[in-house]
Amino acid sequence: MAVSHIRGRGVSTNTAGRFEHFDTVPCDDGWDTEEDLPPLRTDIRDEVARSLITYNRSPDLPFDRSINPYRGCEHGCVYCFARPTHAYLGLSPGLDFETRLIARPNAAEILRKELASKSYRVAPIALGTNTDPYQPVEKTRSITRECLSVLQEFNHPIGIVTKGALVERDLDILTPMAEKGLVRVGISLTTLDANLSRRMEPRAPSPQRRLAVIRRLSKAGIPVRVMTSPVIPGLTDHELEHLLEAGREAGADAASWIMLRLPREVSELWQEWLGDHEPARAEKIMSKLREMHGGRDYDPRWGHRMRGEGEYAGLIAKRFKLAVKRLGLATKTHPLCCDQFARPTQIGDQLSLL
């Protein structure tokens, strides 16, 4: 029996991960009571990381390496493409993904070792590509801040993607890094409708709060990209130009977009959410998505998965291109600076005679 809504959570079910042999299903025990279930609280466990930098060879991504201080994300965005990764931990991509988090408290220590290695070759690191580095847990754990301090110590270029307003806390690190051309921040802005945002992204900052973050970062001299992602056909697609205009007015100098992606378990979770929250639009939304993916909910092919194909996908791409041109927003930005990278002197290092 699916629960129609759990306050403060993006999804309402917790189906076992695809690698599990057994599943638990809630059922009616016959007692007709009106008592509310207790709040579903977040559980945070620590993982001792053995490595931190993850490398990829995807032609769809503008970076080849990334770091993630946390596994799972309390923002609870129902559409999050990273949900299926929780199955590798023996957990559900559903409620577990947003309530059973993994923190990596030794992340900064491992990052320092990896950057200090003589075999390491510098290139921009992406932070927040899988789960948000500024989700609520960061307020007390500060693992992201510790990693930023290491990157600043090495003069290492970093690109950050977040919905979290907590990024403002780290202006004391980000501002001097920006002065050296070492940092760029992307703020994800899905909709300007606060009610819709609250239902889709229950623990993420409101759209207006995210615009305020763009404004504050840009005023501090930090280049910001407004990321209109994901574009959801039949639900948020009509807002595309308004999102770009709002981001530009707040100070963003660049923009990007990605179509809604429904890999693996995300498709089922998304369709459950549509049935609960947008039943009148569900058929149209799924029809448009399948139209862009050859009749499937999602096509994971490189060069296709981010945007889809066909008439509708082409229309969104054209609208985006015209809007960014009109607003003066860049789609390609100057590369982050890599030539300032330097390994700090460590205890036991051989000192130079010069």
Rank of each mutant, 00 (worst) to 15 (best):
A126W: 05
T129K: 08
N130Q: 14
D132N: 05
P133W: 05
P133Q: 09
Y134H: 03
Y134T: 01
Q135L: 03
Q135T: 01
Q135M: 10
Q135F: 04
Q135Y: 06
Q135S: 08
V137N: 08
E138A: 02
E138L: 02
K139W: 10
S142L: 13
I143H: 12
I143C: 09
T144H: 05
T144D: 09
R145S: 03
R145M: 04
E146A: 14
V150F: 07
L151P: 01
E153N: 07
H156T: 09
H156W: 08
I158V: 15
G159D: 13
G159L: 11
I160M: 04
V161C: 10
V161K: 04
V161N: 07
V161R: 01
K163M: 03
K163P: 04
K163S: 06
G164M: 02
G164D: 05
A165L: 00
L166G: 01
L166C: 01
V167P: 02
V167T: 03
V167K: 00
V167D: 09
V167M: 02
V167Y: 03
E168T: 02
R169H: 09
R169S: 10
D170L: 04
D170M: 09
D172W: 03
D172Y: 03
D172C: 05
T175Y: 02
P176T: 13
A178C: 08
A178M: 06
A178W: 00
E179D: 15
G181M: 12
L182Q: 11
L182F: 03
V183E: 12
V183I: 10
V183C: 12
V183M: 11
V185S: 13
G186E: 15
I187L: 15
L189P: 03
L189Y: 12
T190K: 05
T191W: 08
T191A: 08
